[in-house]
């Protein structure tokens, strides 16, 4: 069994209105050191696969077909073996 942790974020070139609103609020709180905020999605997949390669492939296809929209989003997959 593998756990695939997926981070989906808006592409760097795209304005993130939610991140911008959060940054403004953080500045209101006095955290002026925070230069930028980008907000994305965190997804966990629990994959029953024979190998890490197979689990990675399943997770990648899931992102490409459904979990991320590559027109506007990037994704990063981190795999760990679980019991």
């Amino acid at each position: 069994m593998f756990k695939a942790e997926i981070n989906v974020t808006l592409r760097k070139s795209i304005l993130d209105p939610k991140g911008k609103a959060a940054r403004e609020a953080l500045h209101q709180l006095g955290y002026h050191a925070i230069q930028d905020v980008r907000i994305g999605k965190y997804i966990e997949l629990f994959v029953d696969a024979a190998s890490e390669t197979e689990a990675e492939q399943i997770a990648r296809e899931s992102c490409e077909k459904l979990l991320a929209n590559e027109v506007m989003e990037d994704f990063v997959i981190t795999l760990t073996k679980t019991n």
Partner: peptide
Amino acid sequence: LLESGLLPGAMLHNEQL
């Protein structure tokens, strides 16, 4: 239709949220 690929592009959240 955008998600289906019948039309090109994507939709972001409204700029003013």
